[in-house]
């Protein structure tokens, strides 16, 4: 019995908890991508860098607050700086939309032109972020690190395996739940949310019924940029901040949005968790897990790892390609690509 418990705790510690946190971060990013896709109708390649930009502003403010002696311990100071990061990212997005994207909207340009434009924005944002904070790894977490650490857990339960639950992971999951509930309430119940859904469904009909497209677009950017910044800060608290990593996060986020069904907010969340858990489970070494469950004579000699950890990013893309082949609309029947 204790072996089974140990095995379960081990899986929770190394697969379930990290997967939940990473999945929630991906889901928040993918929600932004899917919203931009359903309202502005293009794949935003600058989303990872937008995330980096909002996070960067938050980090700079966090450092300043830490230097000035502000603290909301046991919570990380970054939460205090987060609203300003969001404001910066939203402002940036709106300025870019007004000065760049709107021109192409008025021209009625094809989606691919928007993608090209977002490549330009991506380069620019990338440069700004690297220019301001450089390319190194940055850590900005403070406050209490663990809600429960592995050692504490072992001494409380007397089990051989420990279960660590970091504060950043708890914060991520709680924030994600609150945001998702709020977003769905907004999309389903409020007038503006309904207008957004109508616009996404059928642009012409929405225009005919008097919906102001520029307002819809503005709100979309506000939501997408806020979600991106929050996801970025949570990811940075959980792991660390590095501009290149954030640029790379674009790939699993895209995968999550497409796997879930493009234009479907529920799909983006499901996709985020699916991608996160497949990355973690496929690259996890099951040696110790099986060691607990199997009798000693059968215990595996090697790591029992399906793929080495270096293939983490590749996993999300294999899933993406498989979904595109088998069910191009994604799990939740989004748009046909």
């Amino acid at each position: 019995m204790e072996d089974v418990l140990n095995a379960l705790i081990l899986m929770t510690n190394f697969v379930l908890v990290p997967g939940m946190a990473y999945g929630a971060q991906l889901a928040l990013g993918a929600l932004g991508i899917t919203l931009i896709f359903s309202i502005l109708r293009f794949a935003n390649f600058a989303h990872g860098d937008l995330m980096a930009f909002g996070t960067m502003i938050t980090i700079l403010l966090t450092w300043w607050l830490q230097g000035a002696g502000f603290s909301i311990a046991p919570l990380p100071t970054a939460l205090l700086a987060l609203p300003f990061g969001i404001i910066a990212a939203v402002t940036f997005s709106l300025v870019i939309d007004r000065s760049i994207y709107r021109f192409y909207r008025q021209q009625g340009a094809a989606p691919v032109v928007f993608v090209m434009v977002s490549l330009g924005v991506m380069f620019t944002l990338n440069a700004i972020v690297r220019f301001v904070v450089g390319t190194e790894d940055r850590r900005f977490i403070d406050g209490e690190r663990f809600i429960i650490s592995a050692g504490e857990f072992k001494s409380i339960t007397g089990l051989a395996e420990g279960l660590a639950f970091r504060q950043s992971q708890a914060l991520t999951v709680i924030t994600a739940i609150i945001l998702v509930v709020a977003l769905f309430w907004f999309l389903q119940k409020t007038r503006t949310g309904k207008a957004m859904r109508a616009y996404s469904d059928n642009e012409d009909l929405a225009l005919l019924s008097g919906i102001n497209p520029e307002r819809i677009v503005m709100i979309t950017w506000i939501i997408a940029a806020s979600l991106a910044t929050i996801a970025g800060v949570l990811y940075g608290l959980d792991k660390s901040f590095k501009p290149f990593t954030y640029f790379q996060l674009l790939l699993p986020m895209f995968a999550a949005a497409i796997v879930g069904g493009i234009g479907q907010p529920v799909g983006a969340i499901a996709g985020g968790f699916l991608i996160a858990f497949s990355e973690v489970t496929v690259t996890y070494a099951y040696k110790r897990f099986l060691g607990h469950l199997l009798p000693e004579s059968l215990a595996p000699g090697n790591l029992v790892q399906l793929l080495s950890t270096d293939y983490k990013f590749a996993v999300s893309f294999v899933i993406l390609v498989l979904v595109l082949l088998v069910r191009p609309t994604g799990i939740f029947r989004g748009r046909v690509l």
Partner: peptide
């Protein structure tokens, strides 16, 4: 596998495949 996708999704798919090549 991916050529039938709409242009921007072709871009995402090919971007991902190139990352897989580099990972290998």
């Amino acid at each position: 596998t991916v050529l039938r996708l709409r242009s921007d999704y072709l871009a995402i798919a090919t971007l991902g495949i190139s990352e897989i090549v580099i990972a290998v």
